[in-house]
Design a protein around this nucleic acid. Sequence first.
DNA 1: CTATAATATGACAAGGACATGATAATATGA
DNA 2: TCATATTATCATGTCCTTGTCATATTATAG
Lengths: 161, 161
Amino acid sequence: MRLWFRIPAAFPGTTMLSQTAEYALRVVLFIAQREAAGPVVAETIATALGLPQNYIAKTLHRLAQAGVLASVRGKGGGFRLAVPAGRLPLIEVVGLFDRVEPVRQCLLGRPACSDAHPCEAHGRWKGVSETVAHFFRDTTIGDLLGEAGVAVPRARRARGR
Amino acid sequence: MRLWFRIPAAFPGTTMLSQTAEYALRVVLFIAQREAAGPVVAETIATALGLPQNYIAKTLHRLAQAGVLASVRGKGGGFRLAVPAGRLPLIEVVGLFDRVEPVRQCLLGRPACSDAHPCEAHGRWKGVSETVAHFFRDTTIGDLLGEAGVAVPRARRARGR
DNA sequence: CTATAATATGACAAGGACATGATAATATGA
DNA sequence: TCATATTATCATGTCCTTGTCATATTATAG
């Protein structure tokens, strides 16, 4: 909304996030998958994910400044997670770029909208909005690791938080 | 999303929609509440809702061209709903400006993401995304009429679709 | 026919998101 | 120390969203 989302116009399978936030999510996930072998170089990330290199560099920088990533300069350098994947909720990544955690989130943009003074959409929208907020707060990068390619999970895996 | 939402930066109680889509929703709702007394004039709407007048004029025009509103020119003119409020889902309003109905909506922006070839977030994101999509598809402008100011509804009202 | 009320439309501009390119700063290894 | 790898930063540009202003078009009433 602005909260979190807006529409990127020409995107086919578009998400709910700004382009930058989506990049950030993919980048952090990629690093989480690779960091066992040491810091991951920015160029490697951009190439592997097919993202604009210089733009990603700045996104990485912002993530590092926010304490999500740790950056290492010089030979053998790159980016690592600054926090264990299992303790890194998506909101920590996405929230740097998109406002996904609305303290007060009114579909109609009423500043005074609240449970006590609801707008016309309040009752019906509240549950939806909370569903989205909970997703970003409760899902961690660790939760997503190893999920790719699993069409129908046979059994529930342990959570591991 | 561009699914749907992006962040309007300076907005306090921001929603999930672009500024324009949010305006459209408020405007259509306002017209639905007033149209019993005849067409509603654009200036009246802008003044009552505190929205930029000339900008709203264009939004109204787009809504009229899309068949959501009917416009009447000249004295005694203004805008009316072109469809009964109870048969006007929010997606018909919001969808003109924001892409809220993703045929294939991948949080990570993978073009090939699907049930058969899911991305890392697919399983966890799917339910959330469908909740949002259903809200906009299944809620009508009529559903929102008369909801304002009702903090805790005493009893469930009839639906009337 | 004319004045007036209203919508329709076009030109334009400020700001942000997204992006590119070049350069500076810093760490490593020989 | 020096070459190199890598992140950090700056300058710039395009496009879209939001918004303003002015004008054209159309309908009504007298």
